[in-house]
C-alpha cells in the first residue's frame, strides 16, 4: 500500500528534528528546570552550549518567565524544585552507600563427597549482567553455569565444580564483566552437609 503511494508522489521526506537532550537528566534542555538535578544540569549546559544557556537562564529570560506567573506561585515552585533536588541527592547518596555496603557472597556447596558447586550471590548490585556473567564463567571453566533463584528467591549464579578460588582471583583482577566489583566486598563461605536433599 505504502509502495504505490511512494511511486505516485516522490515527496521529499521530512528530516527529523534534532533535539538537544541534557546529559545529566536526559530531558530536553528546556525542561531541566523541572528535573531533580537542576543545578547540575545548568552547569552542564553552560559548559556544553553557552548560547542556549543564555537563552534560558539570562536575567531577561527569567524575568519573562516570572511575568506569566504570580510571585507567590513562582516562589513556591522554586522551593519545590530545591526540595526535590535535595531529595534526589539524598536518594542517590543512599543508593551509593547501599551499593558500597552490599557484599558478593561466594559459596562453596558440597554436593556429594569431593564434589562441589559454587554459588555466587550479590553480583547484580554492581551492575553485572547475571546471564552474561554465567555464560562467561561457563566458558572460562568449561563447566555448566546457570542463573537460578536461591531459597530466598534471589538470583544467583551457580557454577558446577569448586571454582571459588578462581572466581575470587578473577574479581580481584577485575576481568571483563567483573571490573566494577570492589574486592573488599567479597565474602567466601563454605557449606557442608546440606539438609535439604535434592
Amino acid at each position: 500500500m505504502a509502495s504505490t503511494e511512494q511511486e505516485a508522489a516522490p515527496v521529499e521526506p521530512t528530516p527529523p528534528k534534532q533535539v538537544l537532550y541534557c546529559q545529566v537528566c536526559t530531558f530536553p534542555v528546556e525542561y531541566c528546570e523541572f528535573g531533580s538535578s537542576f543545578t547540575r544540569c545548568k552547569e552542564w549546559l553552560q559548559k556544553e552550549n553557552p548560547a542556549l544557556y543564555d537563552k534560558f537562564y539570562s536575567e531577561e529570560a527569567l524575568q519573562a518567565k516570572i511575568g506569566t506567573l504570580s510571585l507567590e506561585a513562582q516562589e513556591k515552585l522554586e522551593k519545590d524544585t530545591a526540595k526535590k533536588e535535595a531529595k534526589a541527592e539524598a536518594k542517590a547518596d543512599a543508593a551509593l552507600k547501599k551499593k558500597m555496603a552490599s557484599t558478593v557472597t561466594i559459596k562453596r556447596i558440597e554436593r556429594n563427597k569431593r564434589k562441589h558447586v559454587t554459588a555466587i550471590h550479590g553480583l547484580e548490585a554492581f551492575d553485572v549482567d547475571l546471564k552474561k556473567a554465567a555464560k562467561f564463567f561457563a566458558q572460562k571453566f568449561a563447566t555448566g553455569a546457570s542463573v537460578t533463584k536461591n531459597m530466598q528467591g534471589l538470583d544467583e549464579i551457580v557454577v558446577q565444580g569448586d571454582v571459588s578460588g578462581d572466581i575470587v582471583e578473577m574479581i580481584e583482577d577485575g576481568v571483563g564483566l567483573l571490573k566494577n566489583v570492589p574486592k573488599d566486598n567479597i565474602v567466601e563461605v563454605e557449606e557442608k552437609g546440606k539438609k535439604a536433599a535434592s
Binding site: Q6, V11, E12, T14
Partner: peptide
C-alpha cells in the same frame, strides 16, 4: 507521509 515514515521504520 509514507516517505518520512520510511525513515523512521524502513520497510
Amino acid at each position: 507521509n509514507p516517505e518520512t515514515f520510511e525513515q523512521i521504520w524502513p520497510k
